[in-house]
Structures are given as C-alpha cells and as structure tokens.
Design a protein around this nucleic acid. Structure first.
Lengths: 242, 242
DNA sequence: ACCTGAACACCGTTCAAGT
DNA sequence: ACCTGAACACCGTTCAAGT
C-alpha cells in the first residue's frame, strides 16, 4: 500500500497517527475529560498530538469550530432507535425512557463537556439542547409519530422533554463533576492550601441549611432522575388522552 | 467631607466615579448585557471604566473572581419573601410560583449571563443552580417549612424545583438570546456574508423537521413555562398528601 | 500535501514605581 | 491609597516558508 519512494510511516514523528479532523476531535474530548474545557488550548492539544498548534488549522476552523465539533460528536453518539430486543419498539413510554437514559449516559461519561452541549448556541434557535442536531430531532419526531402521536403533539413533547433533560442532567453532571473533576484552578502552581470547598463554608448565619446539610448533601441522582422521568411520562399521559 | 490638601474629585479623570467592587461588577454586567461574556476582558472593562486593567485587581481577585461576583450579584437580586399584598404569604403554591417568576424575570433581563449562573460551580456541591447562594437556599427552605412542609420534604422540593427552573429558563434564554444578542463572532472584522443562521440550514434530508419547522419555530415560552410550572405543582400536590 | 517558524495582536496577571 | 508602565508568560491565528 505504501507508495514508492516515500519514507515509511515511522519517521521523526515517532509513529504518530496521521492527523485528521476526527482524530483531533477525539483527542480533544479525551483532553477535556482529563482536565477541563478551559485548559484545552490549541497549543496544548497540538502538543498532545505531537504536532505544532498551527497544524490543527488544516482540519479545524479555529477553536470555536473545534468546540462545536466536540459538541456535535457527543450528540451524534445518540442512536436512532432502541435495540430491537426491547418492546420499546412500539411503546412511546419505553422510547422516551430509552432516549432519556441514552442522553444521560453520554453526559455522565463526559461531565466536563455536557455544559458545552447545554449552553452553546445550536445552528438554529428552534434546535433545543441537548437534542440539538437535525438528525436527532428528525429521528425523535419520527419515532413519536410512528408511535401514535400527532405531529403537533410530537413537537410539544420535544419541547418538554428537552427541558426536562437539560435541567436534570446539567445539575447531575455539575454535582458529580464537583467531586470527580480536577479543581478549576486558574492554572497557577498548586499552592496547596486549597480548602475542601465543601467544609469551609460558614453556615452560622443559616441555621436551617446547617441543620439540613446532611440531607442536602445526599446523592439521590438516580432516583431523582427516574422519578422525574416517571412524572413527566404521567403528565404526557394525561395530555395525550385529552 | 473632602480632606484638606487633596484635589477635588474632578482631576484629569474627567469626573469618573470612584472605583469600587460594586461599581466594577455592575459595569461588567452591563457590558455583558451589551455584548457577551467572551468579549468581557479585564482590559475592555477597564477601558469602559476609564481606567487601566491593572487597577481592577485592587477590587477583584482576577477574572474568575469577577465572573463569580457577577453570578452572585444576579442571584442576590432574589428577594426573601413575596410582597405582603399577595395571599402568597401562606400558600406554598403561590410562593413557588412567585419564586419561579422572580428567577425567570432576572434571567430574561440578562440572557447572556444566565448560562454562567447555570454552569459555574457553586461554593458547595449541594448548592444547586440557579438557587445557588446560601442565603437564598436558607430562605427557600424556611419559606416551605413555614408553609407546612417537613424539612425532608422541603429539601426534595428544592431539588425538583431547581431542576425545573434550570432546564426551563436556560432553554428560554438561549432561544431569546439567539434573536436578540449580538452574534458571537470571534471578534473578527465583520466580513458580512454572515448567513442568517436560521435560513441557511439544509433540511432536504430531514423531511419531518422541514415540514414541522414552522411549528418548531413558534415561540410558546410563556405558556410552556406556565404549564410546566403547573404540572410541577400538581406533581408536588400528589406526593405532599401521601 | 502537510507541517512549521516566525510574527502579530491580543490576553491575564504581577510588581515596582509613580502621585 | 490608589492608579499606572512595563514586563512576563501565555493565548488564537495567519502566512510565508520549508519538506
């Protein structure tokens, strides 16, 4: 396969993979997962790829375009339809449940990236995060219509469903990221002395919060998600039969 | 009041207001409202205040601290209790409704800032945006307990209520910001040729979206908010009487 | 064709120095 | 006490030049 006269792939690049948009975006995602969006710079990403920052501009139209591609990459991981095994194929309850968990699973794998999905402006104002790609919206609406919704109704469900997902998952990801992710220090030298962020609060003026702090700190993310999703489906049940 | 020997306030500074943290934060908020968070730099903010960027560091511990103060300033605008006029004083339905609209009103006044409120890490992981200040949480929980909730129940309501507010308002603010706010161009020279963002999408592969685009584009933010809020209160009604 | 060196115009931030 | 000039270490980005 190697064209004649060319040196083999292992030159002074030390066997580095050939650059491509896909490789760059993938590596950027890994980078953010390991540190944060703020720490992702064209130069640091270049260094990780064994290349100068300027090389990236062949494949990516600047940093903003890169961030956009990162968001698109996560959203594109959403599958079109649930695996045939489930009886979800005909049940819209099941479909929405499957979709909700799909989005949540992706978000929890990339807690430092989901805020980008949540806040970056989609290509059109009527595309609503986190279901913010044309392909996903098309499939979502089609799935609901197939399962018996009118088109008007499907659009309404798109609205309430995205709103539900956004609030629920963004809060969960923030909470989980808090404990997991590297502290968002301003890239200083680590001067130690970083307070535990949680224990250092002065609650003396807030007696109720102080008393309920153990309760407030409990992590019920899973049940919360499940129960809110159930409540949403119940609500849709009511209005769908009206 | 003026100390002896000092020149009067009108020197070469041309009658500029005396610098203070409050002034700086307020001006930064105005700045973001008029442009965007990305365009807010220490240098541009200094220029707006008629001062060099370095002067700001007397009052603000760097840019991150400034952003934090901006978020805190918005959250602090939330009042403790509804005006005595309403019968909301005893009705928790009314209280939550009043609170929901308070948050929404502030967010809609600062659509470019609300994403910061939504995504910046609060001081503790159990503080949930947008109700992310100790004072507000204390008052919120106290208000619910006063209106007959158990403490455990109040904490649960805090969770579902913040999730509701975050999803609902973040989406609304993004949608409204889309049409209102200055385009987030990378600070280039305006090279014209900026497509209308909405009309330029190629929908040929997405027939259902193409067909339903008028429907998708309709703005029902007000009713959506009202109806989702009602649904939330209904849901709380059920579980509160259990 | 693909990558780089050098350069430009910006950042945030520090600190000695001015008044 | 309050502000600034100068400087440092970083950015994103462009483009002519290398291979």
């Amino acid at each position: 396969m190697a064209r004649r006269g060319e040196p083999t792939a292992t030159g002074k690049d030390g066997g580095r993979k050939p650059l491509s948009r896909q490789l760059i975006v993938g590596e950027a995602i890994d980078f953010i997962d390991e540190s944060s969006v703020n720490h992702l710079t064209m130069r640091s990403l270049g260094a990780r790829l064994g290349v100068e920052a300027m090389s990236l501009y062949r494949y990516v139209n600047g940093r903003e375009d890169l961030l956009e591609a990162i968001v698109a990459s996560l959203v594109d991981q959403l599958e079109a339809t649930p695996p045939a095994g489930h009886e979800l194929t005909t049940d819209w309850h099941g479909y929405l449940q499957w979709m909700a968990h799909s989005v949540r699973d992706i978000a929890l794998e990339h807690p430092a990236i989901f805020p980008l999905v949540a806040t970056r402006h989609p290509a059109a104002a009527w595309l609503r995060p986190p279901l913010r790609s044309l392909r996903v919206v098309e499939e979502f609406l089609a799935a609901l219509v197939e399962r018996g919704f009118t088109e008007e109704r499907a659009v309404e469900v798109y609205r309430v469903f995205t709103s539900f997902l956004l609030g629920q998952i963004l809060l969960e990801v923030a909470q989980r990221g808090e404990s997991t992710a590297p502290v968002e220090e301003p890239l200083d030298e680590g001067d130690a002395d970083i307070p535990n962020r949680d224990e250092e609060l002065d609650l003396s003026q807030f007696p109720l919060v102080a008393k309920l702090r153990p309760l407030l700190s409990e992590d019920h993310a899973d049940e919360e998600f499940e129960r809110s999703l159930e409540a949403l489906l119940d609500r849709l049940d009511l209005t769908v039969t009206q």
